[in-house]
Design a protein around this nucleic acid. Sequence first.
DNA 1: ATCATCTACAACCATTTGGTTGTAGAATAA
DNA 2: TTATTCTACAACCAAATGGTTGTAGATGAT
Lengths: 116, 116
Amino acid sequence: MVVDDLSDADLDRLFQAFADATRRDIVTRVTAGESSVSGLAEHYAMSFAAVQKHVAVLERASLVTKERRGREQIVRAHHYGLQRARRLLDEYETIWRQRADRIADILAEDRKRVPS
Amino acid sequence: MVVDDLSDADLDRLFQAFADATRRDIVTRVTAGESSVSGLAEHYAMSFAAVQKHVAVLERASLVTKERRGREQIVRAHHYGLQRARRLLDEYETIWRQRADRIADILAEDRKRVPS
DNA sequence: ATCATCTACAACCATTTGGTTGTAGAATAA
DNA sequence: TTATTCTACAACCAAATGGTTGTAGATGAT
């Protein structure tokens, strides 16, 4: 049962977004609670513009959303992006596990046929 | 309960490795069954050297292993890298879900106090 | 009205990335 | 031995990435 319908480009953006420690930290923060871009920027030893770019990357990957509130831009976690990434890795792991089980079965057969 | 102990650089490599469609396809293939590097290269419209590089990226990310067999280099899936990535995303999702539940509770409280 | 704050975005720079071609070594086949 | 196959790796290139500074527009506070 496939629930995801993400293009290669979508997946590229999704995993690329996770491939940076600052961005993973931003995801953690806004997952714990919303924050303005400048609020986020305080926590990192880089310029506001750099943080702004990181947020933009996360937004393009559908991992966060931005919403204006007064003069601030509020960043929130976007659940579904996260869920999709996890499900994809789940699929890989399921395939792997099935194969591992099959190998285990074959080994078990061997043991029956050639008892020590 | 934290089972993972991956540095930022480890995670960078891990997600970076997934951030390319060719590499994800290689992971899928070798997850279904081992293959030589040249065997993999047949499936892609790029040079052998390019595929070789992709395999090297996956190897550095601990997603596959290489082993010499005669003149071939056999590529296999390495389960643990995959598992670690999935668990990390699980953690994010758990945090998010807890927060979503908390918000739902607060809304439920509101409904009790201010019945329509 | 003025000032401070928050954001947007352009221009620039160094490094990394994803590809190429070319050369060379090791293992197998004839 | 010689030829073929598979791999390793260097050198190169264009484009993307992750950072910077600088300028300008909106919004809120005094």
